[in-house]
Computed example of a mutant assay.
Amino acid sequence: MSPTTADLPRTAELHGADAPDFAARFRAEVLPANRPVILRGLVKHWPAVQAAQTSDQAVCEYLLPFYQGARIPLSLGDPAAGRHLFYREGMAGLTFERRPTELADGLRLLLAQAHDATAPAIYMDSMPLPACLPQLAGAIPLPLMNPQVMPRIWIGNAVRVQTHFDLMQNLACVVAGRRRFTLFPPEQLPNLYIGPIDFTPAGPPVSMVDLEAPDYDRYPRFREALAHAQVAELDAGDALYLPYAWWHQVESLSGFNILVNYWWTDTPPPTKPFDALLHAVLAFRHMPPEQQAVWRGLLDYFAFEHHGPALAHLAPEHRGLMGLSSPQQAEAIKGILGEAFKRG
């Protein structure tokens, strides 16, 4: 018998968010472990969370004075899709359409239909606070985060976002409603049956397996992915730490939901790694296996430095483009790549 999401182990939890040493524990215990952790009650003190405990209307009234008029993205789902933000049958488009709107109009639409089980998906997603609610960040302090990390806000009804990953670390804080995250470690990539990387519902590629009804005949290795999965369920005031590139399906479990999240990386790359992946596909995919093995070794040595710093036997000034990372080095490499692509 195949496992279901109800059978999955629960994500580990860290309590005591009120303790003065909590931020230090987060940095000393959670980040180095590189595993998801629920931080119970982390943001229960936020005024927005407290307003949401009163009513959906109350938290909307709390947010609107922060709004400065920027247009925001609103996704409206196909009622036939069951609020699943995904591909249509046969991948003939997506199950939702996006259009810009005013925050007040989006909230009004959501409040009118939040508890209507027949309403379509209504989702205002990934809105940077400096753009749409510029003063709100100051009202939701989070000592765990570097102040330079930009928060984003997500508002909607009970929608299901397909399993995907982010090339960032993520701290997701529930302001209103309840959320369920189904989590898979990065090494389960081959068992998640990923869709195209150039036609996606929202940016990153997604798993093609429907968690609600997995088709094991079509996706047999997904059983192995489920064997390594876990589930995190969060109430308002809770937060989830997600390490870099962990796969996650996100379900909003209430008729009205708000989440604020923080994406960051400790070592931002000078270029987009996904661009390098596309270049690698173009360069290596059609090589004979014996040549791919050679390039796998070269990448391990020069790019990933699995054997220690590349060219460490040379003085730093003699390592050329493999010397210490710097803006000048990055620009030199980009210049070489630009010329290479011009030549075709």
Rank of each mutant, 00 (worst) to 15 (best):
L240N: 02
M1P: 10
L85P: 01
G93R: 11
A19P: 05
F302Q: 08
L192F: 04
D105E: 15
P243R: 08
G156H: 05
L31D: 03
I72Y: 00
L167E: 09
F184W: 04
A24Y: 03
Q162T: 13
D238H: 09
Q68V: 13
F96N: 07
W295I: 05
P73W: 09
G320C: 11
A139N: 06
G344F: 01
M1D: 12
A137V: 10
A245K: 11
L259I: 12
A202S: 15
A81L: 09
D215K: 07
F302H: 14
R99S: 13
L110P: 00
L63A: 03
G255V: 11
A81D: 09
D217V: 14
A245F: 10
E317R: 14
P268N: 08
A239P: 02
F165M: 12
P289M: 09
G344Y: 01
E331A: 15
Y193F: 13
A276R: 04
L337V: 09
D56N: 07
Y244G: 00
E187L: 05
R83W: 10
L253N: 08
K342W: 01
D275G: 08
T271D: 11
I197K: 03
E29M: 10
H286I: 01
F165I: 04
G338K: 15
A245T: 04
G16Q: 07
T265M: 11
L110M: 09
G323K: 06
D238K: 09
R98H: 10
I333Y: 03
Q68M: 08
F86P: 00
R223T: 10
A245D: 08
R319M: 09
P143G: 02
Q57F: 00
L107M: 05
D78T: 04
A70L: 05
S254A: 15
V149C: 11
F274Y: 13
A315I: 06
W246D: 02
P47E: 07
Y241E: 02
P79A: 06
A119S: 10
A24V: 09
A227N: 11
E97V: 13
P196E: 08
Q291G: 01
R83F: 10
Y193S: 02
V174Q: 02
A312E: 14
D198N: 10
T4A: 11
Q135T: 14
F199P: 00
K272P: 00
R10D: 13
G237E: 05
P270H: 06
G195F: 04
I38Y: 03
N191I: 01
D215G: 02
A17T: 03
H15S: 12
P269L: 12
P151I: 12
P270K: 08
S2C: 03
A131K: 14
Y62E: 01
L63T: 00
T11L: 09
H318N: 14
H307Q: 15
E233R: 11
L129P: 01
W264K: 10
Q292D: 02
